[in-house]
Design a protein around this nucleic acid. Structure first.
Lengths: 118, 118
DNA sequence: TTAGAAGCTGACACATGTGTGAGCTTCAAG
DNA sequence: CTTGAAGCTCACACATGTGTCAGCTTCTAA
């Protein structure tokens, strides 16, 4: 299938399909004219990519785990669980930082509003 | 005081002091030779900027709230509390998104590890 | 055969705080 | 006066997924 069709069936923009290829997540063959030609598994692959992106993984990590994914991005082989655990740890750290910032800002607001009342 | 001194007493790099000025957070006067000259209040201002940055506020917002800050970034006039509340809401949304991503990733990991055991 | 749709590549843009470097000028101490 | 430190400006780089535009080529349907 052509890139426009794949975009239509997956809801992912043509631009992004090209980007995913640039990131080695998709590897369409080329027609003699140079147009991308995707196999029938491509829509599933794109759905997996989206599922992993939506799970917060960067393309660099998806590139590693993609060969180990089965189903709609909900199962991966144990071979990449270390990678996923790293990623999870990183996300938890980011959440903790954000939460800490949030608390700091909330504290400022509380002081401000207490002063407004008092 | 000169920029190098200010950097030394605040621990903030010269590059960042120039950046804060570019963002209208600091407004040193200039010597006839074009060198920045900071008043004695500058270290406090820089500490406030850092406190607000560390609370997760972008410079664009800090620019607005800075004139209303008192103390070491721990109190602001009520005039900017709407702005802060917006910011707080935005941060809470970001945290929620991240948390949701984290849960998605954790779910994948759980399935993977359950499969590794079973 | 021809026009228009769809494809191609390459590039720039965004946000955002921060590092780094080049190339030049000013300042301060000897 | 001279020299080296410190300052100046301007610019590019990073990450990251995504939009958009220009300029050209291929494909497809009439």
């Amino acid at each position: 299938m052509k890139i426009g069709e794949l975009a239509a069936v997956t809801g992912v923009s043509v631009r992004l399909l090209r980007y995913y290829e640039e990131q080695d997540l998709l590897t369409p063959v080329r027609t003699p004219g140079g147009h991308r030609s995707y196999g029938p598994e491509a829509p599933l692959t794109v759905r997996r990519i989206r599922a992993l992106l939506d799970a917060g993984l960067p393309t660099r990590v998806i590139r590693e785990v993609l060969p180990c994914v089965e189903g709609d991005g909900m199962f991966v082989h144990p071979c990449v669980s270390d990678r996923l655990r790293d990623q999870l740890r990183g996300m938890e750290e980011r959440i903790a930082e954000l939460e800490s910032s949030r608390a700091g800002l909330a504290a400022i607001l509380e002081v401000t509003e207490a002063a407004a009342v008092g």
